[in-house]
């Protein structure tokens, strides 16, 4: 029998952290991308409240469902994207909560992280627009190319820590230093950064949503509140990817010792630094590179990146430290 207070507490947990904190942090990270990119291009860039103004404006616009669209799927796809991404954030350890540490939560998070792209594909196919169909096909090409190296790179910390739980991986890193300072960990980090660009649909891999080529790809028929949900899903996806890479390879995002104030302060600072490092690397790669063609991206992932990931996987079996 489940007590009522457990149900209440879990609902409060989901609402407070999932719906209030995660989108706000995610929108702040999108602002960092835009401001950093603008400053690198000798521009000023938007003020800090810009992503919030964008989302509120989109929520207040008219909702248009095109005639050729399958209505239920069209309306459910953005909800699917946002819900899976928030759930992925809720499962991962973040600043001292490790609520649902069960065996295999790494696999669940990996699975949930591929959902926004799938939701975009579902929404694009449901809208019945030929531009959306082309965007869906391009997105499928991209997904086929990056899933294999991602799994191989995610296996490196799992093999090192000999466990499928985030907590065990983080404890292993607390004992042996962050995995990025080992050779296999570093190679896995490189692979994960590349795959992260493709998952977030950022240049050089923003093939699905290429504004000058196919007019916004799968999102072409979305307007108003549905587009706001997609934007929020993108923002929280930034946070989820940063948290995933930090937890797996950069040493974890939890405060190790809650008793000492010094440790709490330094750990909180380190958490912010780790997330920001991942985001800034993504921003630099984004603003320095043009867009790749689908076949170029496919070739690059299957040849170079899979090779690096395989190398990392092989090296992670070697029991020598720093390997």
């Amino acid at each position: 029998m489940i007590d009522l207070w457990v149900v209440g507490l879990s609902i409060a947990y989901i609402v407070l952290i999932g719906l209030l904190i995660a989108p706000n942090i995610g929108l702040f990270l999108t602002w960092i991308h835009r401001k950093l990119g603008a400053r690198m291009q000798w521009r000023i860039g938007p003020p800090i409240y810009q992503p919030w103004a964008d989302v509120i404006k989109l929520l207040s616009k008219e909702l248009i469902v095109p005639e050729t669209a399958h209505r239920a799927t069209f309306l459910l796809a953005p909800l699917l994207a946002l819900a899976t991404v928030i759930l992925a954030f809720l499962i991962m350890p973040f600043v001292g909560r490790t609520p649902l540490a069960f065996v295999g939560d790494v696999i669940v998070v990996i699975y949930l992280m591929s959902m926004p792209a799938l939701a975009a594909m579902i929404g694009g196919s449901a809208s019945g627009n030929p531009y959306a169909a082309v965007g869906v096909q391009r997105e499928m090409t991209l997904i086929f190319s990056y899933e294999l190296p991602f799994i191989m790179a995610a296996l490196v910390p799992i093999l090192k820590a000999r466990s499928l739980k985030f907590i065990d991986i983080i404890n292993y890193q607390l004992g042996n230093g962050p995995l990025v300072f080992t050779i296999s960990g570093f190679l896995a980090f490189v692979v994960m950064v590349m795959v992260m660009q493709a998952k977030l649909a950022l240049p050089p891999f923003d093939i699905p949503e290429a504004k000058t080529e196919i007019i916004a790809g799968p999102y072409v028929e979305y307007s108003g509140p549905l587009l706001a949900l997609f934007k929020l899903a993108h923002a929280v996806m930034l946070l989820v990817v940063a948290c995933f890479v930090s937890n797996m390879l950069l040493g974890g995002l939890i405060v190790s010792d809650w008793s000492s104030y010094v440790v709490i302060l330094t750990d909180l600072l380190l958490i912010a630094v780790k997330i920001l490092v991942v985001i800034i690397i993504a921003a630099f790669i984004r603003f320095y590179n043009p867009r790749l063609r689908p076949d170029q991206a496919f070739g690059m992932f299957w040849k170079t990146i899979t090779f690096i990931a395989a190398l990392a996987l092989i090296l992670s079996f070697v029991p020598i430290p720093y390997f």
Partner: peptide, 18 residues
């Protein structure tokens, strides 16, 4: 590519031109 990266850093340091 290296020149582009250096240009980006120079833009970050010198400030906007707007």
């Amino acid at each position: 590519k290296l020149k582009a990266v250096l240009e980006g850093f120079r833009a970050l340091i010198k400030g906007p031109f707007t």
